[in-house]
Simulated scan of single mutants.
Amino acid sequence: MGAVVTAVIAIAAVVLGWITIEMACKPCLETGRRAMDRALDPNYDPDSPTNTTTGSGGASANEPLLGDLSASTAPPAKAI
């Protein structure tokens, strides 16, 4: 019985850890997933000037696969 309880606690810890990472890194993960979706799309042609393919994430056709993450819309953090 103790092994079952230990296994349930370990699985719950892994699930909570995964949720924490997903929430903490959400903007970066969304950008990466959108880039992977477009890169793996057989209909996406980066050389085509009139690319009409828009992924399920709503990425525009002119957006680079990995955007500039330094240009964030969030205000700068205050120094302590």
Score class of each variant (00 low, 15 high):
residue 1 M to I: 03
residue 1 M to G: 09
residue 2 G to Y: 03
residue 2 G to K: 06
residue 3 A to E: 06
residue 3 A to D: 07
residue 4 V to M: 10
residue 6 T to P: 00
residue 6 T to R: 11
residue 7 A to F: 02
residue 7 A to R: 04
residue 8 V to K: 05
residue 8 V to E: 05
residue 8 V to A: 15
residue 8 V to Q: 07
residue 9 I to A: 15
residue 11 I to A: 15
residue 12 A to I: 10
residue 12 A to V: 13
residue 12 A to K: 05
residue 13 A to W: 07
residue 14 V to F: 08
residue 16 L to I: 12
residue 16 L to H: 09
residue 17 G to P: 01
residue 17 G to D: 08
residue 18 W to F: 05
residue 19 I to W: 10
residue 19 I to E: 10
residue 20 T to W: 14
residue 20 T to E: 09
residue 23 M to Y: 12
residue 23 M to Q: 13
residue 24 A to K: 12
residue 24 A to C: 09
residue 25 C to W: 09
residue 25 C to P: 00
residue 25 C to Y: 10
residue 25 C to S: 06
residue 26 K to F: 08
residue 26 K to E: 11
residue 27 P to Q: 05
residue 28 C to F: 09
residue 28 C to M: 09
residue 29 L to V: 09
residue 30 E to K: 13
residue 31 T to K: 13
residue 33 R to P: 02
residue 35 A to W: 00
residue 36 M to Q: 11
residue 36 M to I: 14
residue 38 R to A: 01
residue 38 R to M: 09
residue 39 A to W: 15
residue 39 A to R: 13
residue 40 L to K: 13
residue 40 L to H: 12
residue 41 D to R: 07
residue 41 D to P: 01
residue 41 D to K: 04
residue 42 P to L: 14
residue 43 N to L: 14
residue 43 N to E: 15
residue 44 Y to C: 06
residue 45 D to N: 14
residue 45 D to V: 02
residue 45 D to W: 04
residue 46 P to G: 01
residue 46 P to A: 04
residue 46 P to F: 00
residue 47 D to Q: 12
residue 48 S to M: 10
residue 48 S to F: 06
residue 48 S to V: 03
residue 48 S to G: 06
residue 48 S to R: 12
residue 49 P to T: 02
residue 51 N to I: 01
residue 51 N to V: 04
residue 53 T to V: 15
residue 53 T to A: 13
residue 53 T to Q: 14
residue 54 T to K: 02
residue 54 T to H: 04
residue 54 T to G: 02
residue 55 G to W: 01
residue 55 G to T: 10
residue 56 S to A: 11
residue 58 G to A: 12
residue 58 G to T: 08
residue 62 N to R: 05
residue 62 N to W: 02
residue 63 E to V: 03
residue 64 P to M: 02
residue 65 L to G: 00
residue 65 L to M: 15
residue 66 L to K: 10
residue 66 L to R: 12
residue 66 L to W: 15
residue 66 L to Q: 09
residue 67 G to F: 02
residue 67 G to R: 05
residue 67 G to C: 07
residue 68 D to V: 00
residue 69 L to P: 00
residue 69 L to G: 06
residue 70 S to K: 06
residue 70 S to C: 08
residue 71 A to K: 13
residue 72 S to I: 01
residue 73 T to G: 13
residue 73 T to I: 09
residue 74 A to W: 06
residue 74 A to V: 11
residue 75 P to R: 02
residue 76 P to V: 04
residue 77 A to C: 03
residue 77 A to V: 06
residue 78 K to W: 03
residue 79 A to F: 12
residue 80 I to C: 08
